[in-house]
Computed example of a mutant assay.
Amino acid sequence: MIRSITEALARKRSELGRKEKGFTLIELLVVVIIIGILAAIAIPIFLGQQDSAKDGGVKSDLATAKIAVVSYFTDGATVAPTFDAAAGTGLAKYGFAKSDNTLSIAFKTPAPAASGTAFCIDGVSKSSGATKFRITDSTGVTAGVCP
């Protein structure tokens, strides 16, 4: 009797062992390779999106700086403004605050125009290429630096 029970259990275990199958090493390697390929495609695209966002932040900062500079000169100022938020003479009271994506902003005044004060503002992005942009009193944001 014990022998028949033991044989029945052995048969049942051998049947279960044959039914349980896992992934082979080749199947697992194929999955890992596919994940690696997808990561190789997605990571550069993600980094490019970050750089675009940082460049967009600088463009926004330059547009805000232009409005602040025009307000500054409209109040009757005759000297170049500063972008230092800590200084009381800066453009903070005119609504300008540099974002974290902007590496630097510099005010440059070319020869005064006949009608008003001409100016140019440079901005440098914290993107991987440290992209440079400029804005003048008469134009919008463009790539490059002030002359």
Rank of each mutant, 00 (worst) to 15 (best):
69 V>K: 06
57 G>P: 00
37 I>N: 01
30 V>F: 15
38 L>I: 10
135 I>E: 08
94 Y>H: 03
8 A>N: 07
84 D>L: 12
16 L>G: 06
95 G>A: 03
65 A>G: 00
80 A>E: 14
35 I>A: 15
106 A>R: 07
126 K>V: 04
134 R>Y: 13
139 T>V: 05
123 G>K: 02
66 K>D: 06
9 L>Q: 12
63 A>D: 10
3 R>Y: 12
114 A>N: 08
101 N>F: 09
75 D>W: 04
77 A>R: 11
29 L>K: 06
98 K>A: 06
22 G>I: 00
144 G>E: 03
86 A>W: 06
22 G>M: 03
39 A>D: 03
101 N>V: 08
147 P>W: 07
86 A>I: 04
77 A>M: 11
102 T>A: 03
111 A>I: 08
127 S>F: 05
14 S>I: 07
37 I>D: 01
114 A>L: 12
71 S>F: 03
88 G>N: 13
49 Q>T: 10
141 V>D: 02
80 A>C: 03
107 F>Y: 15
29 L>Q: 07
11 R>Q: 12
54 K>T: 07
16 L>K: 12
4 S>A: 15
69 V>L: 08
30 V>Q: 15
113 A>G: 11
24 T>G: 10
85 A>G: 02
119 F>V: 00
107 F>E: 04
69 V>D: 08
39 A>T: 06
68 A>C: 01
86 A>H: 04
108 K>L: 14
23 F>V: 07
94 Y>A: 01
110 P>F: 08
36 G>T: 01
7 E>Y: 11
43 I>Q: 05
130 A>K: 11
80 A>S: 15
95 G>F: 06
6 T>E: 12
72 Y>I: 00
64 T>I: 14
49 Q>G: 14
40 A>E: 01
40 A>K: 01
131 T>I: 05
22 G>E: 05
85 A>D: 09
24 T>K: 07
